[in-house]
Amino acid sequence: MRRILQWRGHAYLALAARVYVGVIFLAACWHKIVEPGSFALDIATYQIMPLALVNAMAIVLPWVELAAGLMLVVGFRTRAAALLVAGMMTMFTVAIVIALHKGLDMSCGCFASQGAVDDPISWRTIVRDVGWFALALYVLGLDRRPIGIDRLWPRRGAAAPVFRNTSEERS
């Protein structure tokens, strides 16, 4: 297990995963930031959130996506960004499962607002989201020395405990 965690290739695999997921989040947040009203309507269509929270979510969530996406791409506080992405993916997936269970024929509202005809939610949407969730988990769990700002300026304590040579520390 320890050997798996210490494998140096994780940083490179995770870099690809980070850039992929990060760019997706950057692309996803754009229309939500530009048109918060449309995004609020997308959230309301799920019929899950209490009305009082719909707009607050529409206002805040795109900025979390923007921040997390940027952080993943540049490798700044990478694992925190991965934690946020994993949390958001969990939330989105649960929402889509509920919507599918209700039989709602709608767009997921993930990217630029599309109609239910062009981009309907389906079990494929869930598989896709679970895939992104898995990539975020991979970065969170195994990318202990992320390539990027975190590696250039590691924060004391938070980075790279796996690579520390404990025998050297003891001596």
């Binding site: 960004a81 934690l83 946020l84």
Partner: peptide
């Protein structure tokens, strides 16, 4: 630290 950073970003 990871959880705290995520909360700060939030």
């Amino acid at each position: 630290a990871v959880a705290r950073d995520a909360l700060l970003v939030l």
